[in-house]
Nucleic acid binder design. Structure first.
Lengths: 113, 113
DNA sequence: ACTTGATACAACCGTATGGTTGTATTTCGA
DNA sequence: TCGAAATACAACCATACGGTTGTATCAAGT
């Protein structure tokens, strides 16, 4: 299994569409084929097919042959990678707050003396 | 302060660009004006301006007049909202795993009797 | 008041994106 | 083996996106 580096442009790009997020949600808690998924949306089969392809390229879902159809499964690891990046940004923020707090503390201690 | 419902299309769309993620990162741990930010990227001032506008519409940064320029500040709450959604998807996944595990348990218990 | 620095915004251009329809290709069931 | 179901893919269209240049606004400093 080849571990490609996460492509955040594709990941967030894939998540930036309501239909695709809904497909992802469905893929998370059930196993439907492309045609079944397509029935849920007011657009052509081919359009849904393309959305699934986008999610697949982003590493958020995979397709598996089951009988005569292909079942779409979510790839949680992809979600984790994306969430982790956002977490890092928030961590960066915390770090900055800490630095500021420390500066203020040093300053007030100096003023105390 | 008016609390608008989060627009995930815009949020993830804003995050789906390397330059914008970098601007966000910079906005998180320093305070730079639009012009200063623009110096870091191999593109025109106007292009960077547009990227910042996208981040702003997505609720990920805000602009504040400071002296004669406008400083770009990150809005961590926006990041949190986005990360939380991803967390909910992962939670959904855990829920499904739990249901499957329980099914298996009930099945094997039945077989035990 | 005038100049200058910093930002905003409009118009334009090429390419990507989200949708469509139509035509293969594959695989199961009779 | 043949028909039909499920999927894939190409061609096309309208609109959005990321970039450009040019012009306008707006606040500071002299």
């Amino acid at each position: 299994m080849q571990m490609v580096p996460p492509d955040f442009d594709r990941m967030f790009g894939a998540l930036a569409d309501h239909t695709r997020r809904d497909i992802l949600r469905r893929a998370i808690d059930s196993e439907e084929g492309v045609a079944e998924l397509a029935t849920h949306y007011p657009m052509s089969f081919a359009a849904v097919q393309k959305h699934i392809a986008v999610l697949e390229r982003a590493g958020l879902v995979t397709k598996h042959q089951v009988g005569r159809r292909k079942v779409v499964r979510s790839n949680v690891e992809g979600l984790r990678v994306a969430r982790r990046l956002l977490g890092q940004y928030e961590e960066l923020w915390r770090g900055r707050i800490d630095r500021m707090t420390q500066l203020v503390n040093e300053y007030t201690r100096e003023a105390d003396q």
